[in-house]
Simulated scan of single mutants.
Amino acid sequence: MAEYIKLFWKDAPEGEPPIILYEVDTENERLALRSIDIFLDGHTRNIDDLYDGAIEITPIPTVEEFNSHVWGEEFHACLMEKAEFERIWESHIYDGGINVIQEEIL
């Protein structure tokens, strides 16, 4: 079974995505099946193997863990629908707009 998480990274460093979408395998140690980086200019990058070349494979925290600021004050997360994830994955378009990104992060 999969869970879909939208992670907002407030004040992400230049060149880093302020929004990251995760498809999480809840039956396999919460490992990411796929992820999508969303950049300030609206372009996206699909990642079909988040762990390719990784030295250490780490599970994706739950929404509650992200929002309790265990991973830092700059992170906020919410659940999202599979259909939204799939639409962005297929279209390579995040239609939330920059203002929406900033408002949702705050």
Rank of each mutant, 00 (worst) to 15 (best):
S35I: 05
Y4Q: 08
A77K: 04
V100C: 15
D48W: 03
A83K: 12
I20D: 00
E65H: 01
I20N: 07
I20W: 03
R30Y: 14
V70P: 10
G96T: 08
F66S: 04
T44Y: 06
E64F: 10
N28W: 11
F8H: 12
L40G: 15
E3C: 01
R34V: 04
K82G: 11
A12F: 05
V100W: 14
D48H: 07
K82H: 15
R45G: 01
P18Q: 08
E56D: 11
I105T: 12
L40R: 15
M1L: 07
Y22F: 14
S68K: 06
D37P: 02
V63C: 05
N99W: 09
W71Y: 15
I55R: 07
N99F: 12
A83E: 13
L50N: 02
L33E: 13
Y22S: 00
F75D: 00
R34Y: 06
H43E: 10
R30A: 10
D25Y: 08
L50Y: 01
E84C: 05
E16N: 13
T26G: 09
A54I: 03
E84M: 07
E84S: 12
L106N: 15
E84G: 08
L31I: 11
E103N: 12
F85W: 06
P18G: 09
L33H: 04
W89E: 01
Y4E: 03
L50S: 03
N28Q: 14
E86W: 00
E27I: 06
I98K: 12
D11K: 12
E81G: 10
G97Y: 09
I60D: 01
T26I: 14
E73I: 11
E104S: 14
D48T: 00
I36M: 03
E74Y: 03
G96C: 07
M80T: 14
R30K: 08
L50T: 01
H76Y: 09
A83H: 04
F75H: 04
E90H: 10
I19D: 02
D41K: 07
T26Q: 13
D25H: 11
S91W: 04
G96M: 07
I55Q: 05
L21R: 00
G42R: 00
D25R: 14
D95K: 13
G15R: 15
K82N: 15
D48Y: 08
A2K: 09
D25G: 07
E65Q: 11
E84Y: 04
I36S: 09
